[in-house]
């Protein structure tokens, strides 16, 4: 349906996005995962024709959309990261305004407004000014506006930033429902790997403008098939303990938290007993040592040496 071909965006000397190629098939939910500043928003701005690429192409139904993006715009619903609403208008007035922009009028517009309000669960609050909404309600309306014209492709740029878990779940469920009931194609960007893991059929991982991995969850996690992740939790950590792990030649990577360390080692290596002995020598009290099932976070750590939220 949509294809990005070696898409590049350069701001002066900085490559925000570098030779990124990806495709989205009709009816799938594709995740674009990466830390802040990875180039996700830039990539989707180019995909949605809001930003001109420095190089590469955006193709919709095998036609380049760079010169004439109108066909792509027509089928695209954009949910920006910011709350792109008139906060002094009511929920209904916002939907009416954006609906009119899509040439919806009269009964058709009213029907669509009712339908969208129902989908985002704001029917009872339709007459309320957006300023008075909670963060989660604003986010839901932000999504609702993008759905007014029944887009084939919904591009969502970090739609759950800064909201409570309940609202986040509501949004994730709404996305799932739109995809299953309306066969809406969704491009979902996030730096929350658990959201992407929950929603997406296929995933692209971006870091510093480069595409570093892509595929289904299983394909991506299989990158770690030769390694395993050990999570060590303790009452406190000392430099001596951390340095000893870092200098262990069998350890591929580590990430140090306040009271826990994530260690990636080759699958065949067993450092379990060594860790316990080291903790004893360092005077630390370990609360747990777990061998984890690999997550996307672990893959990102493996590929970049950093955590997703660094």
């Amino acid at each position: 349906m949509i294809e990005l071909v070696e898409l590049t965006k350069k701001f002066k000397q900085i490559h925000a996005v570098k030779n990124v190629s990806m495709f989205i098939e009709k009816g799938e939910i594709v995740g674009l995962l990466g830390p802040n500043g990875a180039g996700k928003s830039t990539a989707i701005s180019m995909l949605s024709s809001l930003m001109e690429p420095t190089g590469g192409d955006v193709r919709y139904l095998n036609k380049s959309m760079l010169k004439n993006p109108a066909p792509l715009r027509k089928v695209t619903g954009m949910v920006p990261q910011e709350i792109a609403l008139y906060t002094e208008l009511t929920a209904e007035e916002n939907l009416r305004f954006f609906g009119r922009l899509y040439r919806l009028r009269g009964t058709e517009l009213n029907k669509k407004i009712d339908e969208v309000l129902e989908q985002i669960g704001l029917t009872d609050r339709r007459k309320e000014v957006v300023n008075k909404f909670s963060g989660g309600m604003k986010r839901r309306l932000n999504i609702g506006v993008a759905m007014l014209h029944d887009p084939e492709l919904l591009i969502m740029d970090e739609p759950t930033v800064g909201i409570d878990p309940q609202s986040r779940n509501y949004i994730l469920e709404t996305v799932k429902r739109l995809n299953s009931e309306k066969q809406m194609t969704v491009l979902y960007t996030s730096h929350y790997m658990e959201e992407v893991e929950y929603l997406c059929d296929r995933i692209y991982i971006l870091d510093k403008g480069n595409l570093i991995a892509s595929g289904t969850q299983e394909q991506i996690k299989s990158i770690l098939s030769t390694e395993k992740t050990i999570l060590v939790q303790a009452n406190r950590l000392t430099d001596e303990f951390v340095n000893a792990i870092k200098t262990n030649p069998t350890v591929n990577r580590i990430i140090v938290g306040e009271m826990e360390i994530t260690i990636i080692v080759p699958k065949e290596v067993n450092i379990f007993s060594w860790l316990i002995k080291l903790a004893e020598e360092s005077g630390l009290e370990l609360s747990s040592v777990n061998i984890k099932t690999p997550t996307l976070e672990d893959v990102f750590l493996h590929l970049t040496g950093r955590a997703l939220r660094d």
């Binding site: 809001l50 715009r73 695209t76 920006p80 990261q81 910011e82 792109a84 609403l85 954006f98 922009l101």
Partner: peptide, 14 residues
């Protein structure tokens, strides 16, 4: 433009 409303309008047929 900062808040994205402008982008939404650009993507519309306006």
């Amino acid at each position: 433009k900062k808040e994205g409303v402008w982008d939404r309008v650009i993507l519309s047929p306006v």
